[in-house]
Design a protein around this nucleic acid. Structure first.
Lengths: 348, 348
DNA sequence: ACAGGACCTGTGACCGGTTACAGTGATGCT
DNA sequence: AGCATCACTGTAACCGGTCACAGGTCCTGT
């Protein structure tokens, strides 16, 4: 007989429990539990009849009960500590979130999205996370001075951060792109094209990414015997507007520049606009290279040569690392390689 | 005495339970529970000593145990049924997610992000959601034919969708922008500027938004005695590329057009690029109006006049509606008003 | 024949809360 | 004084799972 669609719920019917299944299958509830978890010895007939009873009753396990009994929740918090308007507008953030969601889904883990910007939210978050409701926490670009960090560490929650967390390297695992070599390869690409008066628009210098990408710029110039001119280094905050502002400053102070390395695509896009307004041809007069290879990069005018920030790899590694830490591995920081993507703003 | 920082956890120490607090406070655990939930009669001294014991022990309630006992989980699923690469790249999606996250956080509800694109994911999702692990589900732009919908409805999970769900109006609450009037106001703005040969690039016609915005276009033309020329209506899929393709078709078929209403900003941006390449001046030769007022709109060249899709209102209303449905209110569909944002692509 | 292991199953305690119910003093009312 | 009521508190059952432990078969080896 074809089993009709299981009817897990109906008007007054309650959801079937493991006891209901046991009764249906004519075994004890412990046996049903064993079949469900598949770890111990159960006779083939018992397995079969339990399976049948499960599909007949439309049984699904109650995660809350299971979590209570095992102490494992099967869920991971994705925690945002920055004011969220900054993050949600960042296309990189969306890509990271998507990757993490997928990686967790693949492992049958549940993703809990938490915001901790206001003081009350932060207090609630701490209580929630240290309350053992999640098995681990993924942090996105935390500020190293954030008191939340020390509280989480004290609560001994497994944590993996996106980006090195200065001062917590021993206790918080992290995954980050190889920003330094990425920056270096970007600038070397400009040098290889014969440019020598290369400016840079940096990211915030209190983030590991901002520091490392600038360091890569230094590395490349030094390696090729070029002098580092402080006037050619202007700081931005990752945003398009800050990139535009920085570009104006650069055109004012070092008008003879022949290339720009921007530490984010958004800043590069702002720079491109200012260059166009100033009548500079890209890439003829000035070559431009960005960083991230976000969705933006392919649609600027001209399309942007950029360093690909492999966020899909990063998210996958974050989840892998977190499951390792949950399983007891000691914290670890890993770096994933970047690659240069050449487009029209600085052709090869 | 200043109470030192509570130490909720330490090397071997287990988290304190309600029993530990009761012992500390010298009352029974039922009394602690009563204090926690604050619903019944408890003497002031008992309240005080329990409060003290709680802060002394650093107690936080175990949500799993509470959910098990009450049948309420305090968490809401944000469910994505579309292939997620489509959604995560959409800036509107990020804004909606941010709004929902904030609205849930304000109500002390937890947001669980779920992806249901592959068959296995869908099966897991159904099991999870109908398993009573969440109190409600927020759906983002579900396809009306999706079998997931009927299963969720059958499982009697409270649902609120973003966008009307054709065929489920009676059982699934929804929140949507007033797309029809938004489209109408966009086109009337063009008519008011003296344009008469107005084309439109629509969204997919199997989504409520796509249909309604086109309907608004019809409404405006008819109301002002203009004829509807099928050659001036081309379909897109919301994306920039489809907008560009549609614009090329329009320039081919009705080169005399003097205005375009695109049903999304991304499509409008694609259209702008094609118009510029074709040497048409915007807004001189052709006026362009978009829809959504996404981040994109302010950064196009020229900046885009657009209909503001109030996603912050939408997300707030979705959560409000969902809590109502969970509390037993019958399903309801609501519409939030749109407003025209005038920029350079069609100045006033 | 019987000890011992492999295989399988059921009982009952437990996870950490909520809540129905039964009780206890103190007070108010007749 | 007697009794009902109010204000408060504790006991115990329950939510739906997991798992340690104690058996019970059956087979094998001596």
């Amino acid at each position: 007989m074809l089993p009709s669609v299981p009817t897990p719920s109906g008007p007054g019917r309650k959801r079937p429990t493991i006891r209901d299944v046991a009764r249906e299958a004519g075994v004890s509830y412990a046996t049903v539990s064993r079949v469900l978890n598949g770890r111990e010895w159960v006779s083939p007939e018992a397995v079969r009849s339990v399976r049948e009873a499960i599909s007949r009753t439309g049984y699904t396990a109650n995660h809350h009960a299971r979590s209570l009994a095992t102490g494992r929740s099967g869920s991971i918090a994705f925690l945002l500590t920055e004011p969220q308007h900054l993050l949600f507008e960042d296309p990189n953030f969306s890509v990271l979130l998507r990757g993490v969601a997928q990686a967790l889904s693949d492992r049958e883990l549940t993703l809990i999205l938490m915001i901790a910007s206001t003081p009350e939210e932060r207090a609630r978050t701490i209580a929630y996370l240290s309350g053992g409701h999640v098995d681990g926490v993924l942090l996105v670009s935390p500020h190293s001075g954030d008191p939340l960090l020390s509280q989480l560490v004290q609560a001994e929650v497994p944590i993996v951060a996106c980006g090195r967390v200065l001062g917590y390297e021993q206790v918080i695992s992290s995954v980050m792109a190889d920003d330094r070599n990425g920056g270096r390869s970007a600038v070397e690409h400009l040098i290889a094209a014969g440019r020598t008066r290369i400016a840079t628009i940096t990211g915030p210098q209190d983030t590991a990414g901002g520091v490392d990408r600038l360091q890569g710029y230094h590395d490349a110039l030094i390696a090729h015997g070029l002098t580092i001119d402080p006037a050619r280094i202007v700081h931005g905050d990752w945003s398009r507007e800050s990139g535009a502002a920085a570009m104006r400053t650069l055109l004012d102070h070092t008008p003879d520049l022949d290339a720009v390395f921007a530490a984010s695509d958004a800043m590069a896009a702002g720079a491109l606009r200012v260059l166009r307004e100033a009548g500079r041809d890209v890439p003829g007069d000035v070559r431009v290279v960005g960083f991230d290879d976000s969705g933006l990069a392919a649609t600027t005018e001209p399309p942007l040569t950029t360093v690909r920030h492999p966020l899909d790899r990063v998210s996958e590694e974050m989840v892998r690392l977190l499951t390792d830490v949950i399983a007891g591995r000691t914290p670890l920081s890993i770096t994933v390689p970047t690659t240069l993507v050449v487009r029209a703003s600085s052709p090869s």
